[in-house]
Computed example of a mutant assay.
Amino acid sequence: MKRKINLLPFAIITILFFLLNSYVLSGIHTLSSNPIITPLFWTFIFVVTAALIYSIVRMRDNGMDLFFKIATHVFLVLFVSELIFILVLLPGDAYHLLLGKPRNIYWVEFALALFIFSILIFVYGIIRGKYAYRIIKHTLFFDDLPENFDGFTITQISDVHAGSFQSPRSVQKGINLIKAQKSDLFVFTGDLVNNKAEEITPWIGHFSQIKAPYGQFSVLGNHDYGDYIKWESEALKRANLQQLKTYHAELGFRLLLDEHVELYKHGEKIILAGVENWGLGFGERGDLQKALTGVDPNDFKVLLSHDPTHWDSEVKKLPSKVHLTLSGHTHGMQFGIEAFGIKWSPVKYRYAHWAGIASENGRFLNINRGFGFLGFSGRVGIWPEITVIELKKTRN
């Protein structure tokens, strides 16, 4: 017996969407009074809305197939672009209303230009932006870094989400950039797949090319546990996780599961620890105390922990100082602005720290913006990231 689907949320969203579009149409009519515009406009809006609702209803039986992806992406691009149009048009209308003047046609043209620009940049994000890898470099200074690790480099990627990839050539471009950094250490901070271990199999040949003199290490992210799809049995879910761990080994990654390793250079060492996923609202599996068992509190420590809320909640408060934590998870929401001194993404309203470096009491956190993408098959303003961190000893 199929579960009944509550259509009330869809009805509310549809009503709000049509009210929003009524205002958009009023702006268009300011520029043209052609009678054909209204029926064409509403026909298009009806088709987009109906396709979205139908794709959601059928998702239970068909999953997130091609039709679902097209319908949701068209709706998302249209909705966000119209929202930008309204946010620009509304203040102008309010201003002219207070002055008792008619709507300014030039202001409407400006809003329409931003609407068109928004659509174009979203299309770019879907076609090219999701593979527009960039290298972000940070140099971090520490008083107690072992002398022989001065200048030690770490390349970090996170959130591969292999099940979302479609272009082997584009992915290889990212792999080549990773290899070109020639870092001492490579780390991957979780979410290798979206849901199932098999998603990584077409890409093993790509990611297994990554090598570093001090090794390649990884941890699990919230998506790696298979929590977001329905399994026929718990045994299959456990088998999927075990298979994913095997694939980490095939990639040449040493998976750290609440444990640590010692990295030696000319007789001195640093600690590299890794925990299972620990994140507020995403499963608090990781055991930091277990990962650091046997570690001298005075040792220099680097921690791999997928979710940055772990740093805020536990890591930065730990009596045994963890010098550097490497995380991912947020993706920067794959949408935002990082230009002209502006750093903004809607994800900031969920995470205090959502990208780049944060620090407190000499303890650093780096949040990688993600190598892959999930949900929205694109990136706008928040591009896929390969992080290179250089550790430096503070000189007096």
Score class of each variant (00 low, 15 high):
Trp278Gly: 01
Val315Asp: 03
Ser170Cys: 08
Gly370Gln: 06
Glu338Leu: 10
Thr139Leu: 00
Ala113Cys: 12
Ser208His: 05
Phe376Lys: 01
Glu198Trp: 02
Phe300Ala: 02
Val88Trp: 09
Glu385Pro: 07
His161Gln: 08
Phe17His: 14
Leu244Phe: 01
Asn21Ile: 04
Glu262Ser: 13
Asp65Cys: 10
Ala358Arg: 03
Asn366Phe: 11
Pro39Gly: 11
Thr201Arg: 13
Trp203Ser: 00
Lys269Ala: 09
Met64Lys: 15
Asn368His: 08
Ile178Thr: 09
Leu20Glu: 13
Phe75His: 12
Ser233Gly: 03
Lys317Asn: 14
Gln166Val: 14
Tyr264Trp: 15
Asn195Lys: 09
Lys4Ala: 14
Leu324Trp: 04
Glu198His: 12
Leu177Tyr: 08
Phe122Leu: 05
Arg128Met: 13
Gln156Gly: 02
Met64Ser: 12
Ala235Gly: 02
Glu147Trp: 01
Ser233Met: 07
Ile229Ser: 04
Val187Pro: 03
Pro319Glu: 08
Val193Phe: 02
Val24Thr: 14
Asp227Pro: 00
Ala111Phe: 09
Phe41His: 10
Ala180Arg: 14
Leu365Tyr: 07
Gly341His: 07
Asp143Tyr: 11
Leu120Ser: 10
Ser345Lys: 03
Leu326Tyr: 09
Val219Tyr: 05
Trp354Ser: 07
Phe115Gln: 06
Thr330Leu: 03
Leu8Val: 15
Asn104His: 13
Ser183Trp: 01
Met333His: 12
Val74Cys: 10
Ala239Trp: 04
Gly370Glu: 04
Ala352Cys: 07
Asp61Glu: 15
Ala339Cys: 10
Phe117Lys: 02
Lys196Glu: 13
Leu256His: 04
Thr49Asn: 15
Leu16Pro: 06
Glu284Phe: 02
Arg363Glu: 10
Pro91Lys: 08
Leu177Met: 15
Val57Glu: 07
Phe253Lys: 00
Gln156Met: 07
Leu7Ala: 11
Phe300Glu: 02
Ile270Cys: 02
Leu25Phe: 15
Tyr106Val: 06
Ile84Phe: 11
Ser359Ala: 14
Leu97Asn: 11
Gly267Ile: 01
Ala51His: 09
Leu288Cys: 03
Leu99Asp: 07
Gly381Asn: 06
Ile70Glu: 05
Pro102Asp: 11
Asp227Gly: 10
Gly375Cys: 01
Ile45Arg: 03
Asn366Gly: 00
Leu263Thr: 02
Ile154Trp: 00
Leu120Pro: 03
Ser167Leu: 06
Phe376Ser: 04
Leu257Val: 14
Phe152Gly: 08
Ser26Asn: 14
Ser26Ala: 15
Gly27Met: 12
Ile127Ala: 13
Ala162Val: 01
Phe75Pro: 03
Glu390Trp: 01
Arg350Val: 13
Ile200Glu: 02
Gly370Val: 06
Leu112Lys: 10
Gly336Pro: 06
Gly252Pro: 02
Asp93Glu: 14
Phe207Ala: 04
Glu385Arg: 06
Tyr106Glu: 13
Asp159Thr: 11
Gly27Pro: 08
Tyr349Gly: 00
Thr189Pro: 07
Ala291Leu: 06
Leu19Thr: 10
Gly129Asp: 11
Val322Cys: 00
Lys130Met: 03
Gln181Gly: 01
Leu120Ile: 14
Thr38Val: 11
Ile270Arg: 05
Thr387Val: 13
Ala111Thr: 04
Arg238Cys: 05
Tyr351Trp: 02
Leu365Trp: 07
Arg103Met: 15
Arg103Phe: 12
Pro39Thr: 10
Pro35Ile: 12
Gln243Trp: 05
Asn195Leu: 03
Pro91His: 03
Glu284Pro: 01
Gly221His: 00
Leu288Thr: 06
Leu112Met: 14
Ile45Lys: 02
